[in-house]
Design a protein around this nucleic acid. Structure first.
Lengths: 349, 349
DNA sequence: GTGAAAGCGCTAACAC
DNA sequence: GTGTTAGCGCTTTCAC
């Protein structure tokens, strides 16, 4: 279909390599041929075929991104990353694993086949064998959100300081005078879930508060889990009283809020709550929800820059320069946005 | 780096083409060689190079998607589309044009260079010369959200029935007894903006209500525009009274709500409001906001299927089968979610 | 059932 | 300054 170097070469009477040089502005070319070639290229709307270039150069200028759910707060990370990547001449191959480990694996393999120059992975697995290829062939992988079990040499990641995040929530409650603080956690298998639980427990203990097993619920990061856990907490409230609940992910926060609303209880009078990544663009939510937030645009920024750096060193070491690029764990600090939902009020039990 | 057909051929003692046949399961191969080849492939973790395949086959199995802002409600469209595309063996090359026509053009060209098999475009321009390449070379393009000026033969799109959307908003207000209804519109240049304005005007007239120029504001689809328009409407309220406002995009709805909040007015008592794509996952927003919504998952679904169909016919006609695939305008019906914000109350002026 | 050879569109080392 | 050549990894026609 489209025009290619060969056709331009034929039409212009010079060789393919000369045409290539003109198109890429490489090497010394006489003005005359340059103009002639450019004219023909324009006329026929020549567009270089990046696929051919990629094959030749073993470089696709494409970065793979796999996330469990684009609808999450994480979409903002993609936007920030996209800005950096595209500025640097990279495109994004995006896949949504739908919280499904098998789908994720499929995508990891697919992206490898498509020879992405690097991968950003928000995995839902605690180990991903499919990544072996990337490691063995020095295709850089940066983990975000969650770090699976991999050889420490490949623990390249940009994560939230999850322990700190939980501690901030607990401390916020304590400051208000709460003592019986429940947590709706993700799960204990993923690092992210684990760290948020640990941060909660550690912080409770540090402040001399008891960690009661009945107040630690596993909601598996989903809306339904948040809903169910909140229900359970409320139903069991007589035996296991609490005045505050910290919900450690966005979706679970939505679920927990739904459960509270259905039960007819008031926030924060009956239950105080701190959510996660729960941003209210509209300012209309009443009461305003206190929430831990990830510095998500920052994450996109940091991830993209880090990955580009890795891609570059990978290329250079490909050329035999033997550069060492030690894996980095980049840990970013969470923030807390204080609203009304975490208050301790007179009527709190 | 990785293993390729050639190396496997050398190691197994058979030819490259035989190895290729084994890998692809094509042609008749003896069990013996099949096993031998497969064993070697497994051992060395052979992964087919899709770039090479793409070059050979002139087919990348990649679909480009360009949207103005992934953070929009549109992210859901991508999720739905991704499910269909990946099922069919296609990957998504995603780009966020950031509401910027030049960036958009750059991405359109880039994706063409990368030889996407098809493009889904939510354009912010009213004409995009860069698409000429796609049309001339029969690379299918489906427009969503907004249809730019292109040759009718290429008006392949999946759009909301924008006129109907506005009419639904107006009628909802009228039903409540509102008569002085303002609109915060996008702009008149894009089809989407235009149709929403027209739908508003037509519906007003059909119901015998006057369309007052002072109550038609252009917010250019952005949050800031929504805010500014709402401010203007409120400041001018003495001269140009109104009791209800229809805001015709999500971002502008956020801006308008902010303006109302800052002014200390109450919804719907002081101003009734209908928003656009304004979904409240949490159910916590008070008052609940009446909103027009696009059937966005449905859009993702329909777009993906339509594009895949086009890609297929494009391929077949490449093989000389001369199939006609007439452009389709697919228009989907909006829905309205009625909340409290559109009510007519006693204290409304 | 298997191999040889051409070619997808491009780049780059080398020669003149 | 320009041309020749080889090759990136693969598929596919044609021959045997």
């Amino acid at each position: 279909m489209g025009y290619n170097l060969k056709k331009i070469a034929e039409e212009s009477g010079c060789s393919i390599s000369t045409v290539s040089r003109v198109i890429n502005g490489k090497g010394r070319i006489s003005e005359a041929t340059k103009e002639k070639v450019m004219k023909i290229a324009k006329e026929h709307d020549y567009v270089p075929n990046q696929i051919a270039r990629s094959l030749k150069n073993s470089k696709t200028n494409t970065i793979g991104i796999i996330v469990p759910d684009i609808r999450d707060y994480f979409y903002m990370f993609i936007k920030a990353a996209d800005a950096i990547f595209s500025e640097a001449g990279y495109s994004i191959l995006l896949a949504d694993s739908d919280e499904n480990a098998e789908k994720e694996e499929k995508y990891i393999n697919l992206m490898y086949e498509k020879r992405v120059d690097g991968l950003v992975l928000a995995t839902v697995s605690d180990r991903q064998e499919a990544l072996g290829r990337y490691f063995r062939n020095s295709v850089p992988v940066i983990f975000i959100d969650n770090l699976p079990h991999v050889d420490p040499a490949y623990e390249d990641c940009v994560l939230l300081d999850n322990g700190r995040a939980s501690a901030m929530a607990v401390e916020c409650f304590i400051k208000e005078g709460h003592e019986k603080i429940a947590i709706i956690a993700g799960n204990e298998r993923e690092t992210t879930g684990m760290e948020r639980i640990l941060g909660y427990k550690r912080s409770m203990e540090e402040h001399g508060l008891e960690v009661r097993p009945g107040l630690v619920k596993m909601g598996h990061f989903q809306e339904a889990g948040g809903y169910r856990c909140m229900k359970e907490l409320l139903e069991n409230r007589e035996k296991e009283p609490f005045t505050a609940v910290y919900v450690s992910s966005y979706k679970m926060t939505c679920g927990a809020l739904r459960a509270i609303r259905e039960s007819g209880l008031k926030i924060p009078e009956d239950v105080a709550l701190i959510g996660f990544d729960f941003i209210d663009n509209t300012g209309l939510i009443t009461p305003s929800i206190t929430t831990i937030v990830q510095p998500i645009e920052n994450i996109g920024d940091v991830v993209a820059k880090r990955l580009l750096a890795r891609v570059k060193t990978a290329e250079e070491s490909e050329q035999g320069e033997q550069i060492r690029d030690i894996a980095q764990k980049i840990i970013l600090a969470p923030e807390i946005l204080e609203g009304e939902s975490s208050r301790r009020t007179a009527s709190g039990q």
